[in-house]
Design a protein around this nucleic acid. Sequence first.
DNA 1: CGGTTAACGGATCTGTGGTTCCGTTAGGAT
DNA 2: ATCCTAACGGAACCACAGATCCGTTAACCG
Lengths: 210, 210
Amino acid sequence: MAELETAPGTQRPGGRTARVRAAVLRAAEDALIECGFDGIDLAEIARRAEVGKTTVYRRWENPRALVADLLVDMAEQSVARTETGSLDGDLCANARLVVRTLTDERQGALFRAVIAAAAGEERTAEALHRFYATRIAEWVPCVTQAVERGEVPEGTDAPEVIRAVSAPLYYRFLVSGDPLDEAVADRAAHAACCAAKAGAYVEPKNDVAE
Amino acid sequence: MAELETAPGTQRPGGRTARVRAAVLRAAEDALIECGFDGIDLAEIARRAEVGKTTVYRRWENPRALVADLLVDMAEQSVARTETGSLDGDLCANARLVVRTLTDERQGALFRAVIAAAAGEERTAEALHRFYATRIAEWVPCVTQAVERGEVPEGTDAPEVIRAVSAPLYYRFLVSGDPLDEAVADRAAHAACCAAKAGAYVEPKNDVAE
DNA sequence: CGGTTAACGGATCTGTGGTTCCGTTAGGAT
DNA sequence: ATCCTAACGGAACCACAGATCCGTTAACCG
C-alpha cells in the first residue's frame, strides 16, 4: 500500500529500537551539557551512544528533532513536590528547586541548551512548552489548596501563580544574567505570594462569585 | 614590531570601515529575523551588506561575535519612557511596550535569535546582559519616583521591580509559550506593583530606616 | 596632495557535517 | 523454530561553510 508515512522506529518499537533511543537520548543530553546546542555533532553523539551515525540521522532528521524527543523524555520524569502547609512555604520550596536546578552545572547547561534549541523551530518549541506545562501542572495543587484554606481569593489563576514564581528566575538565567541564589528564590516566591493574596492573579472572566 | 593584537577595524575606524560595520550589522539583523540564529550564513550576510565575505570573517570571527556586536549597537538606541504619574501606570506602559516588542513579527524574532545566540557563548551573553542592564536602568526612575511619592517603601530595590515586570513576559515568550497580550502585560505590571507596595522588593541588607 | 599601509574583496582551496548505498542484525508474527 | 523485513551500521560520497591568498581601494598622516 502507499503508506508513505512509515517513520523508522514506529513499527518495531521494542528491543533494540528502544535501547538505541535511550542510548542516543542519554548521549544527546551529555553532548548538550558539554557543548551547548550548537556545539553538538550528531556523529559525536552516535559515537558516544555506540550506535551507527546513520541511525541517528535516520531516526531524528535534525538536531532539533532530537532535542524535542529528549524533552518528551524529560517531561516523563517528574520531580517530588514538597508540602509545607502554607502558600509562601510551598512557593519557596518550588523557587529553591528551580534555582538549584538552574545553578547546577549540568542541569543548568542542559536547560539553557534546550531553550536555545527551541528558539529556532516550532516543533521543538512545542515540546518545550509541553514540558513546562507538565511541570507547572505538578505544582498547581499548592495554589488550589491555598485557595481552599482561604489564603488567596477564589478565582485565582493557579498556573499563573506558579509561572510567576519561576519567571524572575528564568529571566535572570536567560536574559539579564543577574545572580541566582536562595535569597532571590525566596524573594520571587514571596512576591508571587503577595501578589496572589492581593488578588492580582484573579482571572478576569469570572467574577468573584463561586 | 611584534604587535600581535591589531584587530582589524581598530586603527582606521572612520569612513569605509564604519560604513561596512553598519551595513553588516543591518544585514545581520535582517538575517537573524528571517532565519533565526542558527539559520544564518555569514556569506549571505556579506552578500546582503554588499561586502566581501572575507571582510565579515575577518572582522567578526564567528556568528556569535557578530551578534554580540549587534547587541552593543542595539543598546545604544534607547526607547522613550512614558510617565503617567503613578507606579502602576508607568509599569503598565513598560509592560505593554515589552509585549508590543516581543509580539512584533520582526522584533520578536530578533530578540529570540539574540537570546538563543547568547545561550552559547560567554562573550555574547555578556553583551546581552549589558543590553538589558541599559534598558532596565532607563526605567528605574519610575520606581524611585514612586518611592519619593511614598507609593512604595523606602529601600525598595528599583531595578528588581522593573525586572519583575518583564520577567513573566519573557518567561512566556521563551519558556512556557503561553500567549502574550495587553491583558497579560497589565497583569504583570499590576502584580509587580502589588508586591512592591507590600515591601517584597525591599533590599534585605539595609533596615527600613533611611 | 602624495605616500604608506590598514582594510577590503574576488577567486580558490579545504575539512567536515550530513547523505546515500547496500550488506547485516534482530524484532515480531506464524 | 523459521521467515520476513524493519531497523541498524560501516564506508564511501558530496556540498558547502569557512579559511587562505594576494591584488585593489581608500583611510589617515605629513
